[in-house]
């Protein structure tokens, strides 16, 4: 049911905390305002904590989808820092 349109993907299942978040953050930084990225992450710590860290960075979380293989995909829309 991932009918969400996205522009980029990043897979952070090869990383452990805190590099999961670092890799996701770096990938989001590459995006333009309003673009959507699909972030694939592992069950457990990453899915418990990465969405919240991305929220705290100020980006817009659209959906978390269970891939059924102990990984999840988080859809995030980039929000530029207003400075």
């Amino acid at each position: 049911m991932s009918d969400i349109h996205f522009d980029e993907t990043v897979d952070i299942t090869d990383k452990v905390c805190p590099l999961t978040f670092v890799k996701a953050k770096a990938a989001i930084e590459e995006l333009d305002e309003g673009q959507v990225i699909a972030i694939r992450m592992n069950d457990g710590e990453p899915v418990q904590n990465v969405p919240r860290s991305i929220k705290e960075e100020g980006h817009k979380i659209l959906k978390l989808v269970d891939n059924g293989d102990e990984t999840y995909t988080l859809y995030v829309e980039k929000v530029e820092d207003e400075e």
Partner: peptide, 12 residues
């Protein structure tokens, strides 16, 4: 709620 399901995984 937008039904994103993030909280259901954040809850331990």
């Amino acid at each position: 709620c937008i039904g994103c399901s993030v909280c259901t995984k954040a809850c331990r």
